[in-house]
Amino acid sequence: MVARTGRRRLVGTAGVAGLATLALGGCQTQVSNGYLPGAVSDTGRLVTDLWIPSWIAVLGVGAITWGLIIYAAIRYRRRKDDDGSLPVQLRYNVPMELLYTVIPVFMIAVFFWYTARDEARLVETNTKKDLTVSVVAKQWSWDFNYVDSNVHETGVHTELDGTTGKRAQMPVLYLPVNKRVQFVLNSRDVVHSFWIPAFIMKMDIIPGKTNGFQVTPTQVGTFQGKCAEFCGAYHSQMLFMVKVVPQNEYDQEMARLKSIGNEGLIPVNVSREEMVPGDIQKIPAPARTESNR
């Protein structure tokens, strides 16, 4: 009976190990990226390079901790010949207490240093840029000002009702590949968050405060963008598309926007009532304040 039970456990363990192997083999790319999206920007690569070693260290500590727990449970389990007496009681163990104090403090200090270093890199905006895009968030869409080309793209709320073709109605942000872009982020109404998951970078947009960051797209393609801060009834539908294209295609898009009358930049403090197609030129420029200098 005991032998049969042991065989069942062995077969069960082998089965679980086999399923785990198949699962890991089927998602090798995700495991290698720490289950993050494949990085298509320099910021994404920076975050991934911090994320993966951090999880390796944490999993190592977890394996050691669980190993010690399991070892103690098996090694010092109660046996049939135990007389019921308690083991030797110790009030303290200085070497062990020092070990349990020094190692966590050291790990936290290392995590803090690398996190602070990479966070400073992510929000640093003094690096020489190739172009500037002013992003204006609004309930529940986006306006994109291409500052260097003096043109804009205006977005309207795209209601997702289950029908096809809705993606084509979303505002599109064009970016040239391998060019450093500085995003200037402002909100026209409430708190939003500018998020491009494939870039592995997002930043809150707060009314009355200008935020910003720089990023270099490193891969041509079409990616999804969205608001990552609950901003009202249609927050989940505050979407946009990002097209990373070669420089010549980017220049063609800038020329197209100019040809259809999207010349000029949309001010941040425009009210919803003023955002009428064709009346962009009539909108007065915003007053110069500390937040938009």
Rank of each mutant, 00 (worst) to 15 (best):
F144Q: 04
S149N: 14
Q169A: 10
G84R: 01
Y174S: 00
V190H: 07
Q252T: 10
Y71V: 05
D83I: 05
T125S: 08
I69G: 00
V215L: 05
C27F: 12
S141E: 04
A168W: 03
L122T: 08
D42I: 10
G26P: 01
D189H: 02
L50F: 14
K179C: 01
I200V: 12
Q224R: 12
W55E: 10
P246K: 12
T216G: 05
R8V: 06
V2H: 14
L173T: 01
V88D: 07
L86I: 06
G15I: 07
M170Y: 05
L24Q: 04
G232C: 06
G261M: 01
K80D: 12
R167S: 06
R288C: 09
E290Q: 10
R180P: 04
L239P: 05
S236H: 05
T164V: 09
S141C: 12
E124R: 03
D251A: 15
K226D: 07
C227I: 06
D83T: 09
T210C: 06
V16P: 01
R167Y: 08
R79V: 11
V47A: 09
R78K: 13
H157R: 02
V190I: 11
V151T: 11
D251T: 10
T29R: 15
S236A: 08
A233N: 02
P246L: 11
S54M: 13
A109V: 14
D148A: 07
Y92F: 14
L46N: 05
G18Y: 09
S236W: 00
K258P: 00
T13G: 08
Q28L: 14
R272H: 09
Q214A: 01
R78T: 12
G278L: 08
T158M: 03
K166R: 11
R288I: 14
L99P: 02
G6Q: 10
H235F: 09
K129A: 10
N248A: 15
L90W: 13
I205L: 06
W113S: 10
V151H: 02
A20H: 00
A23Q: 04
R9N: 12
I280L: 13
Q139E: 13
D279F: 11
D42F: 11
L265E: 06
R4A: 11
S187G: 08
V94N: 04
N292D: 15
C227L: 01
Q30L: 15
W66G: 13
G221A: 04
S41G: 06
A287V: 15
R180Q: 07
L185S: 01
T13K: 01
W55S: 11
S41P: 02
F111N: 09
G212R: 06
R8T: 03
S271H: 09
G225R: 05
V11D: 00
F106S: 12
Q224T: 10
D83H: 04
M241Q: 13
E273G: 01
S187Q: 02
P207A: 00
L68M: 09
G12Q: 07
G6V: 05
A72G: 02
D82G: 01
T29W: 08
V11C: 03
L122S: 09
A120F: 07
D279M: 14
K202A: 12
K258E: 03
A3V: 10
L185Y: 02
T222V: 13
G278D: 05
G208T: 08
L59N: 14
A228E: 11
V102D: 02
V215I: 14
D148Y: 10
K80A: 13
